[in-house]
Design a protein around this nucleic acid. Structure first.
Length: 229
DNA sequence: AGCCAGGCTACCG
DNA sequence: CGGTAGCATGGC
């Protein structure tokens, strides 16, 4: 989705979108997805798969997560009920490629307990934050990608890039970055559905860009976003 | 061989 | 509060 540049944050978005194009974002094992379509998840199964992916991808590459999800799928265990009833060791070995498999196995089981109690209702951000294993980024990722709520996701890349560009100083807090990005974007976009799409694409674009230019030190080499304040 | 990956908790002062 | 060790595998 194109938007008109009128402030710093939009210029950032436009430069990234111009360069990398629509990212689509959340990749699925079940059902696939199409670029430029935003009516996902299309099923409860996809919704749960996003939540699972969010937990598994903590401090890991998504390609590792895909392996774990395929392992689970091959065992017929890509649903909350199946994971709940499978042996713990089987769960651990399935998600092994994503690292931290002991922690993540218990995080997943705790999330499932929480998820099933929701009974189809969308969780609040605060509720998610009270689930062990769900921090700020995971809560926002689940809300944004699984529940299509307008919650901007801030990850290590986002902070690193914005610090490098001089928007924030070292040690900036999650909340500060999130509030800034959201308030800037909301100045131009009022429609909730549009906001969700922008937030989804924006985070994906930042990751795409940061993988290229903000992965190894010194950060920002070859970054063309010299447009900031 | 070492550093990094789409973080979070627990525990420290 | 803020800071940090520990968690673990896989890719480059």
């Amino acid at each position: 989705m194109r938007i008109l540049a009128s402030n710093l944050v939009f210029r950032l978005y436009e430069s990234l979108y111009e360069t990398y194009g629509a990212q689509g974002w959340w990749p699925f094992i079940k059902g696939g997805y199409h670029l430029g379509e935003y009516d996902y998840p299309k099923s409860e199964a996809q919704l749960f798969e996003i939540c699972l992916g969010v937990i598994l991808t903590q401090n890991t590459t998504f390609t590792s997560v895909v392996k774990s999800l395929h392992n689970l799928n091959d065992m017929g265990c890509l649903t909350s009920s199946a994971i709940k009833t499978m042996p713990l060791d089987a769960l651990k070995s399935a998600i092994r490629p994503s690292g931290y498999f002991n922690q993540k196995a218990s995080y997943i089981l705790e999330f499932i307990t929480f998820f099933e109690k929701l009974n189809g209702r969308a969780p609040t951000r605060d509720e998610l934050l009270h689930v062990r294993g769900i921090g700020e980024e995971s809560a926002d990722s689940i809300l944004l990608y699984a529940y299509n709520r307008a919650e901007f996701v801030v990850d290590a890349y986002t902070k690193r890039m914005l610090i490098h560009l001089g928007v924030f100083g070292e040690g900036v807090k999650y909340r500060e970055v999130k509030d800034f990005m959201q308030s800037q974007i909301k100045k131009e976009i009022a429609d909730e559905k549009e906001l969700v799409i922008i937030y989804q694409e924006f985070h994906a674009l930042i990751v795409a860009h940061a993988k290229k230019h903000y992965s190894k030190k010194p950060y920002g080499v070859g970054c063309f976003l010299d447009i900031i304040p």
